[in-house]
Design a protein around this nucleic acid. Structure first.
Length: 233
DNA sequence: TAGGCCATCTGGTCCT
DNA sequence: AGGACCAGATGGCCTA
């Protein structure tokens, strides 16, 4: 089976995390983790045409300054610290780096917490890259909106079940879809899973799956689709 | 504007 | 002890 690949500029994902590089270069463990994080985000961007949708700036809206840290909650402290390096003048960055050094030196817990946050983001990135990879392997319309994580999992389950049924049927895929067209999909009395609720197309999932096998670049203007889950949920 | 989806932070728990 | 994993809380973005 052939997958559909769309153009994707990995730079988009990379720039979202570029500011990690603006942290103190002498902060060794941090820079190493940040490098890993950057690499991971770039890799994620190469996996799927949808990756640019999922990558957001870590602290997109925070406008706090570093000097606010002492009066803020622990969560805001870290976020404001990082984001300030993004939005402020370059000459302010060195000053904040020195302040950060003082902060981390005097608050070991914050250093640990910050490292844990980076590890957690890296872990989530790796999970997300798995989702992106999975999205590349489940059938969707070219113009369908990006599958959510839960929809991706459900569709993957349904897709596996369908492929299993095709194998069990002993038919070739084209014969199978012909059979579906003539007699209806065998398990259609079971659950219907709808990604958007706007369109209901009988057997669409089966048809599209088979069509994708037979004609890798299937055309459709649909932006929503109903999948027949059948004996999966 | 409400709801869905998502990223991030955080503290707790488990594992090595 | 430190890292991995998890779930809850929070806030931003997008769409109907």
């Amino acid at each position: 089976m052939e997958d559909i690949f769309l153009d994707f500029d990995a730079q988009d994902a990379a720039t979202d995390f570029a500011f990690w590089g603006q942290m103190d270069p002498n902060f060794q463990f941090q820079s190493q983790l940040d490098t890993l994080l950057f690499d991971c985000s770039a890799m994620t961007g190469q996996l799927s045409p949808w990756s640019s949708f999922g990558c957001q700036s870590v602290f997109p809206e925070a406008q706090l300054t570093f000097t606010d840290l002492d009066s803020q909650s622990p969560q805001l402290e870290v976020g404001a610290e990082v984001d300030s390096a993004l939005v402020d003048e370059p000459h302010e960055i060195g000053k904040r780096r020195r302040q950060q050094q003082r902060l981390t030196a005097h608050h070991p817990y914050k250093v640990q917490r910050y490292a844990a946050n980076i590890r957690e983001r890296k872990r989530m990135l790796s999970i997300n890259s798995g989702f992106e990879e999975l999205r590349c392997h489940v059938p969707t319309f070219p113009y369908e909106k990006r599958l959510s994580k839960i929809d991706t999992l459900r569709l993957a389950i349904a897709y596996i079940a369908l492929l299993r049924e095709i194998l069990m049927s002993g038919c070739d895929p084209k014969s199978y879809v012909d059979e579906c067209m003539k007699n209806g999909y065998k398990n259609q009395t079971n659950a219907i899973w709808n990604t958007s609720g706007k369109m209901t197309v009988k057997h669409l999932f089966v048809l599209f799956t088979i069509l994708k096998i037979a004609f890798p670049v299937a055309k459709s203007s649909s932006k929503s689709v109903t999948y027949n889950v059948n004996s999966v949920i």
